[in-house]
């Protein structure tokens, strides 16, 4: 009856015009803003937060999950200067994580290949 849609935790509700990312500039704090990431969870948000904190241009990065039954996350970012916007630092963080993931994929593939070469006799082929 009032059960949520089965896919409501990971599929954007495009019918009601839901967008993946919504940005709001902070009205009280300088160089700060809040990203609302719809249909995301700790999986990606904690990754983004930790990557943002590695950037010396970032003064603050933190996220909240408002409620277990709410399917969006809010990511608050403040930068050190007005020359770099929160959107820019987030964009850089995602790019860095992207290349890290590419590297990880290659690394895993190599490691698997090497392991198979070294253990051919164990595998019996």
């Amino acid at each position: 009856m009032n059960a949520p849609e089965r896919a409501s935790s990971f599929l954007l509700d495009e019918d009601s015009g839901e967008r993946k990312i919504v940005y709001t500039t902070d009205t009280k704090v300088t160089n700060a803003g809040t990203f609302r990431l719809n249909k995301e969870d700790h999986t990606v948000l904690n990754l983004l937060r930790m990557q943002l904190l590695r950037d010396p241009g970032v003064r603050f990065a933190g996220y909240i999950h408002p409620h277990p039954l709410i399917n969006y996350m809010e990511l608050k970012v403040q930068t050190n200067s007005s020359h770099t916007s929160p959107t820019e630092v987030l964009s850089n963080a995602i790019e860095d994580l992207g290349s890290e993931t590419d590297h990880l994929l290659k690394e895993v593939q190599n490691a698997m290949e090497n392991w198979r070469k070294e253990n051919q006799d164990v595998l019996g082929n």
């Binding site: 990312i21 940005y23 990431l37 959107t87 987030l90 964009s91 995602i94 994580l97 993931t101 895993v108």
Partner: peptide
């Protein structure tokens, strides 16, 4: 494991694209 890394890669690409749209 390989599939999980590809899922992550695709998600990051998607987020990067959405962020570009935002700009």
């Amino acid at each position: 494991l390989l599939s999980a890394i590809r899922v992550l890669r695709n998600r990051l690409n998607y987020l990067a694209q959405e962020l570009e749209n935002l700009k």
